[in-house]
Simulated scan of single mutants.
Amino acid sequence: MSEIKSILSIAKRTLEIESKAVANLISLLDDQFAHAVQYILESEGRVIVSGVGKSAIVASKIVATLNSTGTPAIFMHAADAIHGDLGTIQQNDVVICLSQSGNTPEIKALLPLIKVGKHKLIGITGNMDSVLAKQADFVLNTYVEKEACPNNLAPTTSTSAQMSMGDALAISLLELKGFSSSDFAKYHPGGALGKKLYLRVADIVVKNQKPQVDINSDIKEVIVEISEKMLGVTAVMDKDKVVGIVTDGDIRRMLSKYDNINGLTARDIMTSNPKTIDVDTLAVKALKLLQEKSISQLLAFDGDTYAGVVHIHNLINEGIL
């Protein structure tokens, strides 16, 4: 038990140190940050993000966040840059260099080469007296009092600060660009996240069969239609108009209510005014409606035309739920 307490104590201390350091970044933000954001926003090029060691890993994450939120970015390892990869930087590109000390040898070697190319340089560093801070056009201060590491050596708090500053940069650009959820979907077409942002009811119903019976169809026809279309439901039609719905639950209730089902029709057991949804509605909204109403199916409509059925199992299979 004492060992468990000790482990939790270490974890809590780590998170406390890092959270305080990240919160302190708010007081370090100044006009340099705003000018850096404005310059990137107005730039016609890409954002090249560079670093070495743990800072390189953070740089890669910042690149991923920028790309996914509408700001084209490329990662360039500082060590590789001075050994042939400097060509990554093209005209009009903006360069961001990450170095907590600001005096990393690879970064110091890279800075003059960036200046020769006349590219604007944004430095993310915790040392405002460093070479990086002095040579950068814009400096984002990520000073931390100490690392979470008890030896004050392993980059922990400092990388958390760098990551958070990168997020602040990306989200500032996102909001100023008016980057919407539909734009986000374009960059995240795969997986459950992307589907929640772009998958519509129309994309689902076309994969299903379209169950329907006439209002005067006998019960056998209704049961066969529900069984064959495998959606647990059928729409009930009066000519071209949907007037009701019969579910497998309605069939079970009918069997418990009637000793003799001969002569019964869809009209006798259907539920009028079924829950419906438009085909242009996002699938995630269909899921919300199904959950709110505690039902398994919705009839989908394209305007006034019955288009088919969306079943909660469709949404589960698509990874929406």
Results as ranks from 00 to 15, higher is better:
194 G>D: 08
143 Y>H: 14
175 E>D: 15
154 A>L: 04
147 E>F: 07
181 S>Q: 13
168 A>Q: 00
206 V>E: 09
158 S>V: 00
193 L>Y: 01
156 T>E: 11
173 L>E: 02
156 T>I: 02
159 T>V: 07
145 E>S: 14
157 T>V: 00
155 P>I: 05
186 K>C: 08
192 A>Y: 03
153 L>Q: 03
146 K>D: 07
158 S>R: 01
168 A>I: 12
151 N>M: 14
180 S>R: 09
164 S>E: 11
177 K>P: 12
132 L>S: 01
201 V>F: 01
174 L>G: 10
186 K>Q: 14
156 T>P: 08
145 E>N: 15
202 A>P: 04
190 G>K: 09
171 I>D: 02
164 S>V: 15
138 F>D: 03
164 S>F: 15
134 K>T: 05
213 V>P: 05
197 L>W: 00
191 G>D: 09
214 D>I: 00
181 S>G: 00
196 K>A: 08
197 L>H: 02
178 G>T: 09
166 G>L: 05
136 A>G: 06
207 K>H: 13
173 L>F: 10
148 A>C: 06
159 T>W: 04
201 V>Y: 05
132 L>Y: 05
170 A>W: 10
166 G>Y: 03
147 E>G: 04
171 I>T: 13
162 Q>C: 14
168 A>C: 11
156 T>C: 10
169 L>M: 09
181 S>V: 11
209 Q>L: 14
149 C>Q: 01
176 L>I: 14
185 A>Y: 07
211 P>N: 00
208 N>F: 01
154 A>S: 14
163 M>E: 07
180 S>M: 07
144 V>T: 13
177 K>V: 11
179 F>V: 08
209 Q>E: 14
188 H>Q: 07
182 S>T: 15
207 K>Y: 02
169 L>V: 10
139 V>E: 01
196 K>V: 02
133 A>T: 08
189 P>K: 11
163 M>G: 03
204 I>E: 03
199 L>K: 11
159 T>D: 06
193 L>D: 06
174 L>E: 06
